[in-house]
Design a protein around this nucleic acid. Sequence first.
DNA 1: CTAGGGTTAG
Length: 637
Amino acid sequence: MRAISSLLPYLKRLPCSSCLTSLASTLSSPVNSSSLLNDFTNFCYKRDLPRAMRALEAMERHKVWADAITYSELVKCCLARGAISEGKRVHKHIFSNGYEPKTFLINTMLNMYVKFSLLEEAQVLFEKMPERNVVSWTTMISAYSNSKLNTRALNFFVLMIREGVMPNMFTFSSVLRSCERLSDVKQLHSCIIKIGLESDVFVRSALIDIYSKLGELQEALNVFNEMVTADSVVWNSIIGAFAQHSDGDEALYLYKSMRRAGFLSDQSSLTSALRACTSLAMLELGQQVHVHVVKFDRDLILNNALLDMYCKCGGLEDAKSIFNRMIEKDVISWSTMIAGLAQNGCSIEALNLFHHMKTSGPKPNYITLVGVLFACSHAGLVNEGLYYFHSMKDLYGIDPGREHYGCMLDLLGRAGKLDDAVKLINEMNCKLDVVMWRTLLDACRVHQNVDLATLAAKEILKMDPQDTGAYVLLSNIYANSKRWDDVAKVRRNMRRRGVRKEPGCSWIDVNKQIHAFTLGGKSHPQINEINRQLNELISRLISVGYVPDANFVLQDLEEEQGENSLRYHSEKLAIVFGIMNYPREKTIRIGKNLRICGDCHLFAKLVAKLEQRHIVIRDPIRYHHFQDGFCSCNDYW
DNA sequence: CTAGGGTTAG
């Protein structure tokens, strides 16, 4: 022992028996295997990885083995530290001669490899396991599910059943995530009921989630409603399901029910609630949700949802200040802000932000560039758009996809370059989808290209025989060139297929109550007063030079009645109602289901000037901010 | 030792 103590000053830390043992072995002293094991156990439980590993080496030399629980602690320690090579070393140790690792210990190793994303290693280990229990199988299935290796996950589930291993709730919540077909979910679902696991909250939320992902919202709701006890994740699953499928009403209803049931809102439910407000364009409600967001103000996803809500609900100033205040911003935050600026008519600002992103933001992705091209198309920035489109592959490594082509068609089409648009179509390697044809059709309408419009409308109706807009436009085109036989034919087709024109509708929120108007607005109790004030307003506008623009009657079937119905377009009624009920300084916010027509656009600009009002109209794809005789879209929409 | 929920797109 004297020889050892003379070495002590050279050891930085107090020596442990494993150090002593390794010294001892070089000095050929006898080994105390029980104190070696003791130290190893201590180091493992204290998560002292370096010393535990040294002890492990010593144990190997002396053929000393610890128990499985201690080893599994060590593996967990490797996992927690991200120590891959140490983990592999332990793997080698427990598979060396003279030790037979228990199944649960190998499971721990399996899990470690999976968490390190070393699927190959996990796979090899799994195959050489002498015995595989439900945890082993579930670990592999879960690994495949997380890596989107869906077929493999499902195959493993089948193999597991064939081997006679009974799946548990862990297995189902993993394997469900890998289902791509409804029939698979149905089979698993009945399996779950047979085994009696349907009341498990994990299984239930996984079921709700997968039904929702496959678009089976009713099934998701059934699973939810059959539930006796819920936890917050189950609630969040069902709220998220409806929020993600743009059923904001149902999502908000469920959100309120959740609060009534005594659950507090958390990051996930608030995110979904915001998304619901976004899809309903309910700014005021969104602002109420914002109040609850404050206590999670460092949550990136939630902030992104908040940002998007303000962008899409026309609260651009709030959106900007949120964006500027966000401590952490990812590519989604930037993309949201860029698209948001573009949607609100601030395309130049959107492009400036994109330049700023290149120097001090994350790498732009596919969606970012959709926003950039969208900004170009909505401001008529043809050259800029062409530049970004042609350089996106070289500069950002992004291949143009459907959405990018769609933006370009829109850009060229709106700018009247229909020939270039057709050229682009021919260069595309994908076929035109309905949305692209609609884009083209719209451009044709604006630029009066009857031949291409006719083709586009026919193509649209081939793909979607229920597309009201295409019938209406086709019929309008024919009407415009006095081809009354063709008009009648289109009408007959519409009737035969049971297609009805979606009535134009605008709405405005007054005292937390939504007032909706349709053409003529007959159903509103105050319609007589509204019409009176509207007529008076129109006379005053005419006296300062307003000329109703009947050219846009081409948008609506009902418009054949001419200027008089134009006069009672739903947005005009909503604007007048807003003037009647809002103080002058309050912004009049109007939502509508169809795009605004040129006459109403002009009307809104003039009213904004004459009445000194700030008017915001949201149509299905963008915002118009009217102020002082101008619109944020610069009359380009 | 194994499991479930939230954000950007024409």
